[in-house]
Amino acid sequence: MNTLILQTTSRFLFTLLLLLSIFLLLRGHNEPGGGFIGALVAVGAYALYALAHGLSAARQLLPLPPLRLVGLGLLIALLSGLVGLLNQQPFMTGVWFKVLGLKLGTPVIFDIGVYLTVFGALLSAIFALEESAKEVR
């Protein structure tokens, strides 16, 4: 898979896909989109990069090990649910507030948690599969 064309284009595509994934994540606020599909696109970006440049290169582009990202994402999602609980309302009740004129709320935070969880979980699965595939080869 180490063709020059793939290696060169994957660098551009990697950035582009990550931007698209963040766009999808934020678009999910009001329109179709959201953390889940955003994360899928981001995983696609990393998988492409790993194909072109190797696993270790893709791993170096990660801020944290994938499974840690899962934990972090779940933690964020959990905390976003707890906010409602603090307001004497049931778990997961949405709380809305304004930051710099932007209407933000706990659903967005929850979505970011979903994004990180899905991203970490899928990426660790893909990395594990690619590693064991290398062993077989």
Binding site: L67, R68, V70, G71, L72, L74, L75, L78
Partner: peptide, 9 residues
Amino acid sequence: LTTAILCLV
């Protein structure tokens, strides 16, 4: 759930 997440983190 909290325990599990903390064990992951």
